[in-house]
Each structure stands twice: as structure tokens, then as C-alpha cells.
Design a protein around this nucleic acid. Structure first.
Length: 162
DNA sequence: TCCGTATTGAACT
DNA sequence: AGTTCAATACGGA
């Protein structure tokens, strides 16, 4: 199986999307100085081109603080626990937030709060899987592996107050 | 098995 | 209002 990387150009920089033959497997925040991978000379399969259009539109929608109308198929790599957490995260719509405890509750493991934090950190597809909409119970910012500033920015775009 | 975690709530200064 | 602490589930080494 081959992985194909394609850039998503936004006003906030160039995100990098990764695809397997089953769907989107990962998304990276813009990294300064990073040369955008282009699939030069690579033949990009038609389905991937199509998925990438969904991805690009969805990413831009979220950056603008709106809910995407459509997602590409996601090919998530993780344990069952992680996948159920990510599934729960995707149910949070733009402008809303939940606590780690609430997520734990939603997946039927009320006490697995810290493990939920771990799963968020392991999330391969930030932005589309809105890990940034999860705050600590005291309504304070928790952490964010790709940089707290991103979390703040995304929440602000969605009009969230905390 | 041991260690670290993007937690939490209660019990303390 | 800040700090410490134990309980807790999970994943990686």
C-alpha cells in the first residue's frame, strides 16, 4: 500500500493530507520551512483526487468556523478505544465544546478521562476530527499536541467563549 | 510490568 | 485561589 501526500493551501498555510487507498489517513498542520510535497510525476488515482477536494473544502470550512458539509472517507489507524473516541469527537459541531470527562461518558467509560486525553493526542487527523473542541472540566484550555495557539485560534474562529 | 498522559475532584495550604 | 494528591484507563516500551 502506498501513501500519497497532497498539500491543502489555506490562508493559514499549507496543510499536508495523507491518503491510503482506503481514504484519508492523516493531516498535518502547516510547518514553517517545510517544502510542500507535491506528487510530481506521480499518477494520482482518481478516487484520491476526489477525496482531496472534500478534504480541502472541509479544512477551509473549519478554519472559517463552519461545519463541513462533507468529509472524505477516513482510514483511521488506531485501537478500538481510540477510534471510538475519535468517533465521539466528530459529533461535536462547530461552536460547541465538551470536556474530556463528557467524552469518556459518551463512549461508555466514565472513568477513562485520562485515556481520552491520550486518544486525543494520538489523533492523526486534527481539525477534521475536532480535538480542539475538547476543554478541561473547569472550562479551561487543556493541552494540544500541535500547539495550543492553534487550539485557541480554531476556537476563536468558531466563536467559542471560555 | 512500569511509565507517562491534552484529567478530575477533593483536600489541603 | 493556588497547590498537592490519589484514582484511573490506556498505550507504548
Amino acid at each position: 500500500m502506498q501513501t500519497i501526500e497532497l498539500p491543502v493551501t489555506t490562508t493559514d498555510g499549507e496543510f499536508i493530507a495523507r491518503y491510503s487507498d482506503k481514504g484519508l489517513t492523516g493531516l498535518n498542520f502547516p510547518k514553517a520551512g517545510r517544502v510542500s510535497p507535491r506528487a510530481v510525476g506521480l499518477r494520482i488515482p482518481a478516487p484520491i483526487r476526489k477525496w482531496h477536494r472534500f478534504t480541502a473544502t472541509a479544512v477551509k470550512a473549519i478554519l472559517a468556523g463552519r461545519d463541513p458539509k462533507a468529509f472524505p472517507p477516513l482510514d483511521l489507524d488506531g485501537t478500538d478505544f481510540q477510534k471510538s473516541v475519535w468517533r465521539a469527537l466528530r459529533k461535536i459541531s462547530a461552536g460547541k465544546t465538551k470536556s474530556y470527562g463528557e467524552i469518556a461518558q459518551a463512549i461508555g467509560r466514565p472513568k477513562a478521562v485520562r485515556a481520552v486525553g491520550g486518544a486525543c493526542g494520538a489523533n492523526p487527523i486534527p481539525v477534521l476530527v475536532p480535538c480542539h473542541r475538547v476543554l478541561a472540566a473547569n472550562k479551561k484550555l487543556g493541552g494540544f499536541s500541535s500547539g495550543l495557539d492553534w487550539k485557541v485560534k480554531l476556537l476563536a474562529r468558531e466563536g467559542v467563549r471560555w
